[in-house]
Amino acid sequence: MTDHKAELYASDLAVAIWRKASASGAEHDCVEIAENIPALIPVRDSKRPTGPVITFTAHAWRTFIAHLD
């Protein structure tokens, strides 16, 4: 049995356009987000672009960002 959500998620990430955080240092040790995936905010470690991806809903991402200060 195939997990339909997993298939959609994988195809979404295949077309992700990643952007490094503006605060990325000279060594580029930062996070990247993909903003072109509807309903998801994928986040990954810029040092490991083929590594794991964490996804947030738009609401969860805004809440997370609001608590960083």
Rank of each mutant, 00 (worst) to 15 (best):
I37M: 01
R48L: 12
V53W: 09
N36A: 06
D29Q: 13
L40H: 13
G25W: 12
M1Q: 07
G51I: 14
D45A: 09
K20G: 01
E32K: 07
A58I: 15
P38H: 14
A39C: 07
A34S: 08
I33C: 02
K20Q: 10
K5Q: 06
H4L: 15
R62V: 10
H28Y: 04
P42Y: 12
W61D: 08
E7A: 05
D12W: 03
D12V: 02
P49H: 06
R62F: 06
E35Y: 01
L13I: 15
T55I: 14
P42R: 11
L8P: 00
E7C: 00
G51K: 08
E27A: 02
V53F: 09
I17E: 03
V53G: 05
A60R: 13
A21L: 04
S11T: 14
E32T: 12
A58L: 13
T50F: 02
T50I: 05
P52W: 08
A34G: 05
E32Q: 15
A26I: 11
D45Y: 05
K47L: 08
R62M: 10
D69F: 07
W61V: 09
L13A: 15
G25L: 15
F64H: 11
T63C: 07
H4N: 14
P49L: 09
M1S: 07
T2G: 00
I37G: 00
R19Y: 01
H28W: 05
V15Q: 00
N36W: 04
V53H: 05
R19A: 11
D3P: 01
A23Y: 06
D12E: 10
K47P: 01
A21T: 11
F64R: 05
P38E: 15
D69L: 11
I17H: 00
